[in-house]
Design a binder for these strands. Structure first.
Length: 1019
RNA sequence: GCGGGAGUGGCGGAAUUGGCAGACGCGCUGGACUUAGGAUCCAGUGCCGCAAGGCGUGGGGGUUCGAGUCCCCCCUCCCGCACCA
């Protein structure tokens, strides 16, 4: 429906609910009076820091997904202000990033211009929704005043090394082992110190949390940049889906792995969704196990003896292969070893005969992009090096292979393969016919369901040998009439024996824990105990040690793009202009390092960063000591700016520090952080990492930045009914349809491509569990809502909703749709529903028949009747509870129920409606302000005390008690709330239906739950 | 494959500790006011049944006086991870 039509044509003189008039009015009022400016910290009030994930201001403008979380936090903020808390609620812009730069490449428009324009749009849209942000705290990550401090924090990371053994107690009173410390405190080994200053600097550079590393990186030619592992999905770029190649390149990395343990364990006490915590723990992927050295030479006994003396060396020498395993209890089952193709020992191990095959395989692997590796993951491949290593536990010689299912970047880049107890090793061993040795006894069920046909032959052999040994007479009771073993224990025993002797007769690996077999003196131990014991024994003998590994990798922190923060770093150059590998940092006073002006935004087409095309004056300088310097030309990733914005909001005007320590103490941590689950891992992990470094270095006083986290669920487009046809009119039931790899609908049976037809709701009906065509009830229809996307054409623009229904309706609808965390489909009719509610509120309080805005004649200054008071107080109680638990959908339904009642009252006491307006105000602030004014308010209601309920008025004096017979509802009786069981039972027995039901039966028992129900158990 | 979450009317969703299933809204049906209704108001609306009554929270079992809620098995959908040794 069209509001303008209504207003212009029909009721132009009558003051209907007119969001378009009153919303801008109150937005202007709030702005003019600085209603939501936080002001200086007030120690007499409880503080509350409520944060939204700030948006990337894209050219497309605000999406209906944005206001979902923003409305939720706005309600929380408005509610808490009324509860007397001092609320900090800021908003800003995550404004560096690829789209603005891609637009610059296309059009030549400077990213700064595009960004400013987009910010303008976003800000206008957010303001039109009436959010109570303190706009004085606005910031953009692209502001030089902001990224000055991003660069400063980078320098702090650069200035920090992780002392893994440092024991200390933080300002939060928690004892920790491991701390980021100033690089100046890094102990320098004497042999390094003796080599002079340059050696010391190089030694320090290796230990810093920000360090350079030459490594294969994800180079995306289409985007002209290197991407972080996290930005690559199935070998394609997350943004745009372009192919990604692996090439070696010098990069900046942040040593997030140093904090892996703390990032995982310190999640425990956070009030976050368990699913998010779990995702982070999985991402960090901490595993415990052991490192073990396999000897590569011939004099095993000598090596053993040497190791017994020297112990396990820190770094492996060339005479061993070091592996990492989480299952040291399977060490006896290692029948071969596998190295990653990139492993440095491959060359040494490869025999002349195998050289050609190995080289070819290594070359193939190096060319493989992640996409290829993923595609080929289904079948394992590898090559024998010709070399052997010796298992330290039993002196067995095992062949060494290379295969790309072993990753150079995890563990030691080498594994001991235990095909009997690892699926991957099993698959590989089966393919290349490598030996399999069982060292953990599998469970009987597993043995029964995984043994192959040959078990029968084995059984026959066994029986045969038993017969020959004339044992048959003694075991005949265990045989059935055909001479086969009866089922039961004996069958299990045979299978166990088969597994111990011939595990290759089973069709998969047994990766679980159990009792060890074939493991020398360790046989019979439980896997867990075995693992602990052997790890200790290995350490004593100098063959191994306990080890911890993380799936988490160090964070690739450099990008080759223009539109990002420059690094405040210089590379020293030698006389020939070549980098020496030594670095210098910009002085704090030189910050911010701003981007050079550039006219040409075309990518270099090579992995060489964009900034290498910067003017010479920006790129080069000579230090005071005469050293020639070249700037670092990489820029920081978009994550950098969003890592710490919550800190700057607290003190965004500070020009002498990134945050004032006292202000930091007052406002942090963030009490409530709301945003999409797509940031469950990356942003939140990176932020926590930076925060912990700042914590270790004494800049913040809490170990965690975000105390409570809530993820809002995605809003999908309107539900669509989709039918499939082979050709026009020839329908195919959706049960016979599936998707091909590209997402096209195809016929399951023939893979024939099908046309999709969007159907109107009238053309379909429900039948059983699914929808069918009304005209052809055999044809099933797909009914679902899709993610909003331009290509699908189901995007809802918030501006349109505001234009037609107003911001309050949009806010209310988004909250009314369902629980905040849940994924839910949009419905324009639903918006109309809440709009009708707000209109009803308006009409109930104002006089819509008058010529101007005035109170409805039913609104009177009378003493409310008791039922009216009860209704109000029950509503206060329910709405308060629901807002506190973020149950906005139910709080709105309580307000609706209230209104449904009040609309029937001929006299509406002002003293009832005024608190109602306050209850409504966090949800629909514009309308509430307008009504508040009409009800005599002289200023904003934003700081009016939140209504309190009287406990006496929320309890009913008379209640309905359901009466059940054998658990089935048969009647309801109305009794005084205080009535005792006897009274209630007597009343129930007078009910006709109860009398009829009890007739001829014996009451065995009567269950009475006070105030809830009465149940007669009868026979 | 592994991990997590969820299945309740035609639709979105309600339902403290196990205690009236379906609040509230949409949609739909009928009516009122109307030149008109896509405004507003009133009534109805889980399914079957004329009714009495019966059946109902993905399916099957169980515990209980009583199960959407607790336990076991199974099915479907969504999300995350995916050779991490």
């Amino acid at each position: 429906m069209d509001l303008r039509f209504e207003i212009c044509n029909l009721r132009s003189l009558m003051p209907r609910y007119d969001a378009k008039r009153l919303e801008p009015k109150w937005q202007a009022f709030w702005e003019e009076h600085q209603t939501f400016a936080t002001g200086p910290f007030d120690p007499n009030k409880e503080k509350m820091y409520v944060l939204d994930m700030f948006p990337y201001p894209s050219g497309a403008g605000l999406h209906v997904g944005h206001p979902e979380g923003y409305t939720a936090t706005d309600i929380v903020c408005r509610y808490n202000r009324m509860k007397g808390k001092q609320v900090l609620h800021p908003m800003g812009w995550d404004a560096f990033g690829l789209p603005a730069e891609e637009y610059a490449i296309k059009t030549g428009t400077h990213p700064a211009i595009t960004t400013a324009k987009n910010i303008e749009t976003f800000k206008r849209q957010l303001k039109s929704l009436g959010f109570s942000y303190d706009w004085n705290r606005e910031l953009a990550t692209t502001d030089p005043d902001y990224f000055r401090w991003t660069q400063w924090i980078f320098l702090t990371l650069f200035d920090t090394w992780y002392d893994a053994t440092c024991e200390w107690t933080g300002p939060d009173g928690v004892q920790r082992i491991g701390r980021g410390r100033p690089i100046s405190e890094l102990p320098i080994p004497a042999d390094v110190a003796s080599q002079g200053d340059v050696a010391v600097r190089r030694y320090q550079d290796k230990q810093r949390l920000a360090y350079q590393h030459e490594a294969p990186v994800n180079w995306c030619p289409a985007l002209g940049t290197v991407l972080a592992n996290e930005e690559v999905i199935d070998g394609k770029s997350e943004r745009g889906g372009h192919p990604v190649e692996r090439i070696p390149l010098r990069q900046w990395l942040l040593r997030i792995t140093a904090y892996g343990d703390r990032l995982a364990t310190e999640l425990d006490n956070l009030n976050w969704p368990e699913s998010i915590k779990l995702m982070q723990r999985n991402w960090i992927g901490r595993s415990e196990g052991a490192e073990v050295d396999f000897f590569l030479g011939h004099e095993f006994d000598e090596w053993q003896a040497a190791r017994a003396k020297s112990g396990f060396p820190r770094e492996p020498a060339d005479d061993v292969l070091r592996v990492y395993t989480t299952r040291p209890d399977t060490l006896f089952g290692a029948t071969y070893m596998v190295l990653a193709p990139e492993h440095p020992a491959v060359d040494r191990l490869t025999t002349p005969e195998q050289r050609a095959a190995v080289d070819e395989y290594r070359q193939q692997a190096s060319f493989k992009s992640d996409l290829d590796r993923t595609e080929l993951a289904k079948t394992k491949s590898g090559v024998f090096t010709g070399g052997y290593a010796i298992n330290p536990i039993n002196g067995e010689k095992v062949p060494v292979w290379i295969a790309d299912y072993v990753l150079i970047s995890y563990g030691t880049g080498a594994i001991m393969a235990v095909p009997a107890h690892d699926e991957r090793d099993f698959e590989f061993a089966t393919k290349y016919e490598l030996p399999i040795k069982a060292v953990v006894q599998a469970s009987d069920e597993w043995l029964g369901s995984h043994c192959s046909q040959s078990a029968v032959e084995f059984e026959a052999d066994l029986l045969n040998s038993l017969t020959q040994s004339q044992a048959l007479g003694q075991i005949s009771d265990l045989l059935d009439e055909n001479g086969n073993l009866k089922d039961g224990h004996l069958k299990a025993t045979v299978l166990r024996m088969l597994y111990i002797l011939h595990p290759e007769n089973f069709d998969s690996a047994f990766p679980e824990m159990g009792f060890s077999i074939n493991s020398g003196d360790y046989s019979g131990l439980k896997s867990k105990i075995f693992a602990t014991r052997i790890t200790g024994d290995l350490a004593l003998q100098g063959f191994g040690r306990k080890a911890v590994n993380y799936r988490l990798r160090d964070w690739l922190f450099s990008r080759q793009r223009y539109w990002g923060e420059p690094f405040p770093l210089w590379h020293e150059l030698d006389a020939d202009g070549q980098p020496t590998g030594l670095l210098r940092v910009d002085a704090e006073s030189a910050l911010p390092i701003t981007l050079p002006e550039m006219a040409d935004f075309k990518p270099t087409g090579t992995p060489e960063p964009m900034l290498s095309k910067a003017p010479e004056s920006w790129l080069f300088k000579t230090a005071s000591d005469g050293t020639k310097l070249k700037r670092e030309t990489n820029t920081m990733p978009q994550w950098a700016g969003s890592c710490w914005y919550y800190l700057r909001f607290v003190d965004n005007k500070n020009s002498s520090a990134f945050i004032d320590p006292q202000v930091e103490q007052q406002w942090l941590p963030v009490d409530l952080y709301v945003g999409g689950a797509e940031h469950a891992v990356l942003h939140l992990l990176y932020s926590r990492f930076w925060h912990k470094v700042l914590f270790d270095r004494g800049h913040v006083h809490t170990a965690e930045p975000f105390q409570r986290l809530v993820n809002q669920g995605m809003i999908l487009g309107e539900v669509e009914f989709t039918g499939y046809e082979k050709s026009a009119g020839e329908w195919v039931s959706s049960a016979e349809v599936t998707d091909d790899e590209d997402g096209n609908a195809i016929l399951k049976s023939t893979s024939e491509k099908l046309a999709t037809v969007k159907l109107s709701p009238d053309a379909v009906k429900k039948s059983g569990d699914s929808f069918v065509l009304t005209d052809y009830p055999d044809i099933r229809i797909e009914s679902r809502a899709f993610k909003m996307s331009k290509s699908r054409g189901n995007v809802i623009n918030p501006d349109t909703v505001v234009e037609n229904y107003g911001a309050d309706s949009l806010r209310l609808y988004e909250m009314f749709m369902g629980p905040l965390e849940q994924v839910k489909p949009w419905s324009m009719q639903g918006v109309e529903g809440v709009f009708r509610f707000l209109s009803r509120v308006w009409r109930t309080i104002t006089d819509d028949r008058a010529d101007d805005v005035r109170l409805n004649p039913a609104m009177q200054d009378t003493t409310p009747a008791e039922p009216q008071l009860r209704l109000l107080h029950k509503t206060i109680k329910a709405v308060t509870h629901d807002i506190e638990t973020l149950g906005f959908n139910t709080s709105i339904s309580r307000l609706m129920e209230f209104m449904n009642e009040v609309a029937n009252w001929n006299v509406r006491p002002v003293s009832i409606l005024r608190p109602f307006v306050l209850l409504l105000s966090p949800l629909a602030p514009h309308l509430a302000e307008e009504l508040w004014q009409l009800l005599g308010g002289t200023t904003t209601l934003a700081y009016e005390p939140w209504p309190k309920f009287d406990p006496k008025l929320v309890e009913d004096s008379v209640i309905d008690v359901p009466v059940q017979i054998n658990g089935k509802l048969r009647a309801k009786i109305t009794v005084a709330a205080k009535a005792d069981q006897g009274t209630i039972e007597a009343a129930a027995r007078r009910e006709d239906t109860v009398v009829a039901q009890l007739e001829g039966k014996t009451v065995v028992k009567v269950v009475y739950v006070p105030g809830r129900m009465l149940n007669f158990v009868v026979k």
